[in-house]
Design a protein around this nucleic acid. Structure first.
Lengths: 227, 227
DNA sequence: ATCACAATCTTGTCGATGTCAAGATTAATC
DNA sequence: GATTAATCTTGACATCGACAAGATTGTGAT
């Protein structure tokens, strides 16, 4: 097998040599460019110069390929988030946020495969994905615990808020829903800065640095319309 | 035409009578249950007791149906958000957040059609969708302006943070990615409460109520890994 | 009333897809 | 070097979105 990252199969050869890896990387490129919906097995085979049924020998069906992508994606995200663990309690959450957002923007293929709307309906994925996602989420929770102390009731709140914020920002940006509305946010650097500030604001609001009179109140406002 | 909300075509009749509306409402049900990917024109026709080519007379192709759903969804979301405008500046943002989240949870079909990853790639949609989404986003911006004053540099930051938070929370919940990780969040009421608190925390952090020494600093921490 | 026209629905077809089955070719192992 | 396993190919089938052409029904002018 050749060391070079060849994708298309040479015309003479019968075997591709590294079809599985080629399928994965090409699928990631397709998803990054045109979304999960645009991913087709026959199309992949065509791009790689291989017969339409060849992919089936590496991934039994389309869902299996997506599950494999999501699984590898979670491993990579876990690695990126794990590197944050070494940091001090004060900077860990901010670093985790930057790592998450950076992963989403750098690897949109993985991100979409991991967090797309299809993921919950993927056969065989839920348990595996849930466990892997839990690991990533655990890093966020750990960082928050380092901030407010483990066992604090605010841990769950702040973790979830941070997770939602990061997921929302990444999704909006990747799906092209942000630049249309907020011209300032067309650049990636601005997005990262703003998310960084928003995360800091969240902490500031939920766990004020100055010893303010510990008011976890402010929520006794009325809930108008929703039950 | 019968007033009752009939869906399937009576066996004797040649015309359905209200096929367009039946297509829309059935499509919403399908999307709410199984996602946008599961939406098929032939499947819809089958459910409604109509030939496989009948839908084409109301929606030329699949993207057109999705665009129509997204369009109507934006109208409804706009109405829900518009009702917030009457409120006082202090409560407007929280109310807008609850309205947005309530819409997403009550109308998951519309929400997915509006904010799914496909939306940016939908032909003819971008301009229309962008304008409609801008209107909804404008309500958020307006509410924030009522809080910190128009022209304030923090308006854009806080608006974007709130939007990301709401979008992320709604997406995670609808895609089944939350309950697996955070058992407390299996109930909708808890989700709404937590989002409400998170939104309040965001405000608290970015625009402190007490006259704290205006420190928009805290961002001079180093940016370790990302460029 | 009736006639023409437009709207609506049906049947038939085409190319493309995912999946399965069976055979061909190459690599690996004893 | 022969046998076995892995890999790839060809062929087929059901299903899908889309197009074309014909059938049926509602509408409006005369």
């Amino acid at each position: 097998m050749d060391a070079a990252g060849r994708l298309r199969k040479p015309r003479g050869r019968y075997h591709h040599g590294d079809l599985r890896q080629a399928l994965v990387s090409t699928a990631l490129r397709v998803i990054a460019q045109d979304g999960v919906e645009a991913l087709g097995l026959r199309d992949l085979a065509r791009r790689l110069g291989v017969s339409h049924a060849a992919p089936a020998h590496h991934f039994p069906d389309r869902p299996a390929l997506l599950v494999a992508l999501a699984g590898e994606g979670f491993v990579r995200l876990g690695a990126a988030l794990g590197a944050v663990q070494a940091l001090g309690a004060r900077e860990r959450l901010a670093a985790a946020g930057r790592a998450f957002l950076g992963f989403a923007l750098d690897q949109p293929g993985y991100f979409r495969a991991m967090f797309g709307p299809h993921i919950a309906r993927l056969p065989r994925a839920p348990e595996k994905v849930a466990r892997a996602a839990e690991a990533g989420y655990g890093v966020i929770v750990g960082a928050v615990e380092g901030l407010v102390g483990a066992g604090d009731a605010r841990v769950a709140h702040l973790s979830f808020a941070a997770w939602s914020l990061l997921h929302g920002a990444a999704s909006l940006f990747l799906d092209g829903l942000v630049p249309l509305q907020i011209p300032e946010l067309s650049s990636r650097a601005t997005l990262e800065l703003w998310v960084d500030r928003a995360l800091a604001s969240l902490c500031e609001g939920l766990v004020p640095r100055r010893r303010a009179p510990r008011r976890r109140a402010m929520h006794r406002r009325s809930l108008p319309e929703l039950a």
